[in-house]
Design a protein around this nucleic acid. Structure first.
Lengths: 200, 200, 200, 200
DNA sequence: TATGAATGAGGATTCATTCAT
DNA sequence: TATGAATGAATCCTCATTCAT
């Protein structure tokens, strides 16, 4: 594929992302996408098979972006606690961007509930999330700051808490609660991982 | 309103629920609803102002049902731990029903991300969830089985974990993981609530 | 037909008349009619074959009422001029009622443009109007106050002016112009009928 | 707007005009319009906001056409009588076209009775009609062929007679009466304008 | 005689997709 | 490569009509 085509595709995906963040997955029309991209109505069908293909690639692109950011943040730290904090603080980073991203991701999750293809993309994202979680927990156990019996379960719990907190924050629609939820999330994970009674 | 009308409304809401669980919020047409209800195309508009009104009432009805079940389960128990277990085991109770309910609820959450009216309904649901959480945590603290510094935060965390686990389970689309996630959820909450280091 | 049935039919026609005056011929639903009549939705179809039958009978009833009033007014006077004045002053009598009646009549005329049955009803009305016109003109000629070569044409002209004035007044939507138009109408007819140059 | 778009709009308005003339304002569907235009169902909504917008613009277009023709006819003559005759003979010109135009116009008038926006358009048309009437009458008075006390009233009367005659002719549904009504109209106006008793 | 629940045909509108340019 | 005119399928909603009670 030419780099021009690649550039156009990116432009369209970006426009779609903004449109979905504003109007919601199902409210976005091809006209909306071309409006947001400042392109003509026909381009989207020129560069993508059909509308669904745009959304599918947007989902891939979105979860890749989320994962890339989180992975980078973790890699920048050395201790388990710092990696964990970096992870949570990247997942729950800044109200405006977070709101956009999570709105779009939530739209996709809902859609994935009825679409196996979308679920597959999300599963890959989960794998990545769990991997990051396992890394952090394994390191923490080695550092003796975490006390965890089942590392897989811990990884699942970490992502569940991040998503659970983000959704709850998103629904409450109050930017001032953003750091409140971020800290709740981090404290809860830490508390959960450091409870020595877990080694029963 | 006559009880006949009420019965019909229930019938339509039930049909809508099944249709949304099968096809997804935005894919459901009025024709679908009447098909699922075994009634004619016109009924829905006869009993409801418009399609959105059906969905809105379905959301209210859905979160009410969820809350009613959970509340009942909690009330049936006396100790904090048992109440917590009853809460989690009711929220994450049985694969088939759970899948349906949570698919529908997730569709609504996604839609609520772009609709303030829907958010308001969900906020009421959250209030109820937090109230149950606070009750359980408060009792646990009194019983000296929980060690919690901020009861509000604990209540938020409990619901975040339940929702986070349910979404993750739903996305993995494997009924055999149901009890696995249920236990992860319960254990994580318990671990988080019983960590004495929380009282820093 | 029982008198009860007759009473109900009148009640329904009256309700339809009010509804049409308010909302316009094509905007009126059977529900509107029953609402205006304070009756249940089913009655109209019980007493009338179908919706069109109601409108058809309303048209008959309306033009009969208009004609009856005008005929009575004419009969109450003895001289041609007074009869003419009574005719015009009854056709253009009082803003509020006039507006209602003429709105409804105009709706029917428009519909009659595409419906031969309705046109037939209106033709009967025209016959009555022309008959009144001829009577007045014939008397005026006998009284030597009118100078008319063709009595049929005069009768046609009289009705054309009344309708033309009423429509123009109706469209201008200003009750204060009512007597203005009434006088224009009367003066124009009188002027036309008294021009001796007509006997060429 | 491109001239292509303008052409299409005209095409749609023309199709709508024919459809309304045939079936009547309220019976015309968007499907009818596209059928008459030999275009697909979607075009109308592509070029017009909605169905009402088509009708609104059709009304504007119709009264403009009527006025343009009448104005032109008047301008082509020099004496008051000839201008008057040209005016009447253009307003009541040729059965088939006249029938179509007046059916459509009558449909609009009826609708205008319940719609202020439409009334406004018609008011502008009236202004134009009165202006033409005043011009002719003023000239006739100067020429000493007309004897009129109130020029505004005369202008109102002229239009009332034209509309009154056209409606009556239209309702009688007999093309052979067309010239009969045209002459009645012209004679009546002339007779009214030349009656010296008007200068009372 | 009267009701109003239920039906389903009809129509406005939206929008993904196609395709000539 | 890009445009946007044109299409027509899909869907919400209205409402005349039917009919069981």
């Amino acid at each position: 594929m030419s780099s021009k085509a690649n550039k156009r595709k990116k432009q369209i995906l970006n426009a779609t992302f903004q449109a979905v963040a504003d109007k919601g997955y199902h409210a976005v029309t091809l006209q909306d996408i071309s409006d947001y991209a400042n392109l003509s109505k026909g381009v989207t069908n020129y560069y993508f098979e059909n509308k669904n293909e745009v959304f599918y690639q947007l989902l891939e692109w979105t979860v890749e972006r989320i994962h890339r950011n989180e992975r980078q943040a973790i890699n920048n730290e050395t201790t388990a606690i710092n990696k964990l904090k970096a992870y949570v603080y990247t997942a729950i980073s800044e109200p405006e961007q977070n709101r956009k991203f999570y709105k779009v991701y939530l739209d996709f999750l809902a859609h994935a509930g009825h679409n196996a293809e979308y679920r597959k993309v999300n599963d890959k994202f989960y794998e990545n999330c769990w991997e990051m979680g396992r890394e952090i927990v394994t390191l923490g156990v080695k550092e003796k700051v975490f006390s965890v019996a089942d590392i897989d379960k811990a990884a699942i719990t970490i992502r569940a808490l991040i998503d659970g907190c983000l959704i709850q924050w998103l629904m409450r629609d109050d930017d001032r609660l953003h750091s409140y939820y971020r800290d709740i999330c981090f404290d809860a994970i830490k508390s959960y991982l450091t409870n020595t009674k877990n080694n029963k």
